Simulated assay, not measured.
Amino acid sequence: MYAEINGLNMYYETHGSGRPLVLLHGGLGSGEMFGPILDAFAADRQVILPDLQGHGRTADIDRPLDVRLMGGDIAALIDHLGLDQPDVVGFSLGGGVALQVAFQHPERVGRLVAASAGIRRDATYPEILAQQGQVGAAAAEFMKETPMYELYQRVAPRPEDFPRLLDKIGAAMAVDFDFTEQVRGLAVPTLVLAADADMCPPSHFVEVFALLDGGLRDGGWGGEGRPKGGHALAILPGLTHYDLADSPLFPAVALEFLRR
């Protein structure tokens, strides 16, 4: 299905039934990337699975790829679908977008899971930043053997736009960002989730948890020392940035947090 949102013709799917959950994919992917774990999320939830600007079946528009703008898109989709404070779960780019929805529109979100989403550009390992600096249209030929290219060619409204998507996502990754103050003010109960061998070190996600009043004291017998906002931290063992979204640990831990 498609929704006219902020000038986008945004593609989305719904799976399952129950309390709504918006599930946001990573960069150069689409909702299809959650195929191995979608059934786990949809077992007792209605999962809304959008394709973000320029990704999957949502054609690009004349606008930068910016998580702040994409956060506005998801808030508008929530309104368009008449959802009552759905939970929002995002991975990587989608995790950054999920955070923006909660920063900008906390009243529209129930609970939040931000997976593998650093909040400062300089928290990413330097060698990964160097690799990101190589992403652009010139890399399109080298990308033709990748699952991202295969998916894009199969589903995109304009498959010839793949080099343009690489240019725009490369430009987006080159922009410095620091959302420390926005995280400090988060009013939505948030699970900070990451792989133990992610693009940022585990210490970064511990730092994010500390901004949310987490890990600063003993939790207490009755949980009275836990973060006041209901926030939590999960570092998933044996995973990387590249397989976390395939792991059954992701929905298991995310859903346990969302049920609270």
Rank of each mutant, 00 (worst) to 15 (best):
M1R: 10
Y2V: 14
Y2L: 08
L8V: 12
N9V: 12
N9T: 13
H15E: 13
G16R: 14
G18H: 07
L21H: 10
L21M: 13
L23K: 11
G26I: 02
E32V: 12
I48M: 10
D51V: 00
H55F: 07
G56K: 02
P64K: 13
G71R: 07
A75I: 01
L77P: 07
L81V: 05
V88M: 11
V89G: 03
G90M: 08
S92F: 03
A98S: 13
L99H: 12
L99M: 14
L99T: 05
Q100N: 14
H105G: 11
E107I: 02
A115E: 06
S116W: 00
G118L: 01
D122C: 04
L129I: 10
L129T: 01
L129D: 02
A130P: 01
Q134P: 04
F142E: 15
K144N: 06
T146M: 08
Y152D: 12
Q153T: 14
V155H: 07
D161C: 10
D161R: 08
L165K: 05
D167S: 11
G170C: 08
A172D: 02
A172Y: 02
A172W: 06
M173H: 08
A174S: 15
A174T: 12
D178T: 09
E181G: 12
R184Y: 10
T190A: 05
L191S: 09
P201R: 02
L212R: 03
L212I: 01
D213E: 13
G230D: 11
A232L: 05
R259M: 09
R260S: 06
